[in-house]
Amino acid sequence: MKRKLALYIMFTMAVWGGISVFIGKQTVHNFDNLLRNKLLLIVGAFAIILGLGSLIFHHTQKIKRNARYWQYSYITLGALIITSFIGLFGGVRGEGGLPTFFGGTVLGTYQGNIYTFQDKNELKLFKADPSRYAREDIALMPLPQGVSEDLSRYEKSVLLREIQLRNTSLQLQNLEIPLMISPVSGEVVPFEDDFGVSIQNIYEGILVPCGSTMFAMLAFYMCSAAYRAFRMRNLHAGVLLVSAFIVMLGQIPLITAFIPGLHDFRQWILDVPNLASKRGIMIGVGLGMAATSFKIIFGIERAWLGGGEE
């Protein structure tokens, strides 16, 4: 009965899915949008609990049992807790209650006025002492000689971006950007960019390098595998090897510059035999997937129900 209940629910949803695709009525559309954009989204969000739960369970068990390399499980659990804490309380862009920017010294705030001409395309920047002019005065005044001062390129781009992002139709803005001198370039840079522990810093400083280096190592493994295992043992392996060779040679500018026609030959391989094989596989896979989908919907394929009680 318990399995049947899940099957009925799944089948009902599948019928609705079919209706939503083939019936173009506005009420159907509206309800379908609500279901997809809100309700199912909420249900699906809880699935992460499954993943997190298994991760935490796996590592706590490892520590409990003193399994091999159990010490490292503390790193995973610690990183998970600290990252979630910083993320949840510090906010995605550092806007949360938890302060995520500290350390270093603020040079001071840049307090300058940005003058733009009536025509938005003519943007001029200059530093001015705000106490000397009222806002309106500056807006109406022509650019005073000598006040215009060359800003550093970086500063210019930061300010330009600010003015573009906030409101292009504004003619005058009083920007306050905390600035500091970069220890690297000696240029003036926005304060937050360098010293922070926001989730964005963690993303760029830990997630990006680890993730991309793991993928980058595949280049080395592939070279080693190519040297050891890519052998012309029989006709099929030979065909595979020759095809791979031509494709590789055809994408090296160093070679195609000297062997005319190689680039076109590579393109032919991709366009004709490769196309035929990929299309054949794609049609096969497509039919298989459609069949599996129908099997799931009609309750013939029940692997997703898992084992356990009836």
């Binding site: 280049a219 040297y227 090897l241």
Partner: peptide, 22 residues
């Protein structure tokens, strides 16, 4: 693309060498 070219060449040479040895 220059690093691509040299590495591609190295791989091709390795496959050739591996097959010659084999």
């Amino acid at each position: 693309m220059s690093a691509q070219s040299t590495t591609h060449l190295a791989i091709i040479l390795m496959v050739v060498l591996g097959n010659v040895c084999f």
